[in-house]
Design a binder for these strands. Structure first.
Lengths: 353, 353
DNA sequence: ATGAAAGCGCTAACAT
DNA sequence: ATGTTAGCGCTTTCAT
């Protein structure tokens, strides 16, 4: 079954009794070929187990059909899901994808990008909107298309596919305000590593400010992806003499940590304190209590990123920013605050709206 | 900063006043070059922002330096972690990796593999040991190295890097036996899709058989990755008139579902029933109760898979099977069974060992 | 130590 | 409809 040497296009041409050009044509369906010849070529291909040498095609066509994605980690399912969707759509349109992991480090990101270019990547999916100038100029110098994902900045300097993190997180704040909360806390990912987290905090803060509510420094805790950190943050927040009645987490993993810690400490969610997440990971609905969170259209973003890049590469005109809507998913982890003087006051506040 | 056209090796040669051969030599450090010439070439490279055309290198060298990994999904962190490690090591050794997702479907796996070959992949990381004959013969016909991961079969027909799923899961059963359990249940992933799950069930069953304990059909539930399915399975098991005192789950996600459902139903783990997981995902220690589980060296397996493939490709001699040890992590979710007549009997059983 | 030139396997004019 | 042939950008003998 397996021959001495891997067959190339010349072998196929010889076996089929045609020229290499004809072989190329029938394989790529790039021109009409007589049925008879077509049959012979296909037979030869099958008999020899011929698979075109990719590198030669790339070199000749001057096109690689390869996209790349650089993400902070694969170990948070939101990123995995995005990559998955990106890859699916790319494949549908005949593109391959290369993946690199930056570990939230811009220097690593830059280096990976350079490597990916070296490997033939022609379009880049980037996570968030916070990237080094070197990255942008590297891409620009080679005229390679890229798109920042999970952010949305119409008219911004860079193409984006995603949503407005400020707006979405202000919806989260609003939900809690409507329930009557006035004392808030936020647990977020490290803002320095993650512009989305920073924007989210921003959105919450300014929404609260509109109601005259302040978010003091000690009510804001940044932590990493480790569950233990989130649990500790929760413990700290509820230990204050004046604890928050609502805690907004900038991702579901953090909220999960809160739920675990609450169960452990005998604190009732949402009776004693409401907790919100962000992302709507697949298990969010299965927790006890089920998690109120913001649904984020991750898969759509992955698809759209692939489409954007490919359209750009193929010369199709595409808008530089595409927005997807995130929305609130109300579940059990949020409820009105425990009845207290403050709660009553906040009730009055809303009467006047 | 950016020139008209992307620079190629000829441009660099011209700018440095040397031949293309010399440029190639200095870039690849493949032969001695005078310091002066080296300096000039490096300057030219920097000035022109030259990056070698990958496809041309590949075509010329007849080597692609590309590995591929085909996994069922990226959405279970054990797979993401493996890929991550695989990719890291591959990169260290100068290889790129391509990723494909099979969705647990052997037909999709075959098709992806063919695509990957077409894209230049020269070595394959496969998940588990259950693959179609077509896949194996496709790989064999092109003499492409591959390795089945998270399984270990010394002397088997295919190279493996991993551990013996039967042995490891028998350790899990043993732990529970030592605690005095005699009524067992198993919640597993779909065995038809996943030979690891099948082997695990096998290992548990035969370990129990050695103690004369049977695992009746209704005490074995297969389910998918969805948390809700695991919760339902748990509910069903504890509703039996003769419920198990110990439940072994073939992955941590399933065990997590049990813990959630138990909390919901007011069932005490481990007081009423012990629950074990498998994988030791990063959050397993943070659950309440923390999860007793089998630690599985996923990252090491990813590394070893890359090493195996690269060694094979580079002609280094490597053993066809490499074993890594998984081991028990005792945490809170397992304890002796509630005291009953049966428990006393099992106590006697162990006195005689 | 350096240069000249022959491929690597394929595609895409250009011919016929 | 099919064949001929000149690249694509690089590596690697083979000379010098």
């Amino acid at each position: 079954m397996s021959s001495k040497r891997i067959a190339n296009i010349n072998d196929v041409a010889r076996a089929a009794g045609v020229s290499v050009a004809t072989v190329s044509r029938t394989i790529n369906a790039t021109a009409r070929v007589s049925p008879e010849v077509k049959r012979r070529v296909e037979e030869a291909v099958a008999a020899l187990g011929y698979i075109p040498a990719h590198a030669a095609q790339v070199l000749s066509r001057q096109r690689n059909n390869t996209l790349a994605a650089i993400v902070p980690t694969l170990d948070y399912s939101i990123f995995a899901r995005k990559i998955d969707a990106f890859q699916r759509r790319a494949e549908e349109r005949g593109y391959n994808i290369l993946i690199a992991i930056s570990g939230f480090d811009p220097r690593v990101e830059l280096e990976k990008c350079s490597r990916l270019i070296r490997s033939g990547a022609e379009g880049f999916l980037l996570e968030g909107g916070l990237h080094s100038d070197e990255l942008y100029s590297l891409l620009a110098s080679r005229k390679l298309p890229y798109v920042n994902t999970s952010v949305y900045e119409p008219g911004g300097a860079h193409p984006t596919v995603g949503f407005d993190n400020r707006a979405v997180s202000s919806v989260a704040a609003e939900h809690l305000l409507e329930l009557g909360h006035r004392r808030f806390a936020v647990i977020s990912g490290k803002a320095a590593l993650n512009d989305s987290a920073a924007d989210q905090v921003d959105g919450i803060r300014s929404r609260l400010a509109r109601e005259g509510i302040d978010l003091p420094g000690h009510m804001m805790i940044e932590c990493g992806f480790a569950l233990a950190e989130a649990r500790q943050a929760f413990r700290r927040l509820v230990s204050f003499q004046d604890p928050p009645t609502a805690i907004i987490c900038t991702n579901d993993q953090l909220a999960f940590g809160c739920i675990l810690e609450a169960a452990n400490a005998g604190i009732d969610i949402p009776g004693d304190v409401s907790v919100m997440g962000f992302d709507d990971l697949k298990w969010a609905a299965s927790l006890t209590p089920s998690l109120t969170t913001m649904y984020v259209p991750t898969a759509e973003i992955g698809h759209a990123a692939a489409d954007f890049l490919i359209d750009r590469m193929e010369g199709t005109d595409t808008p530089a920013a595409k927005e997807f809507s995130a929305h609130l998913i109300r579940r059990e982890s949020t409820a009105p605050p425990p009845t207290t003087r403050e709660a009553a006051e906040s009730g009055r506040l809303f009467e006047s709206m």
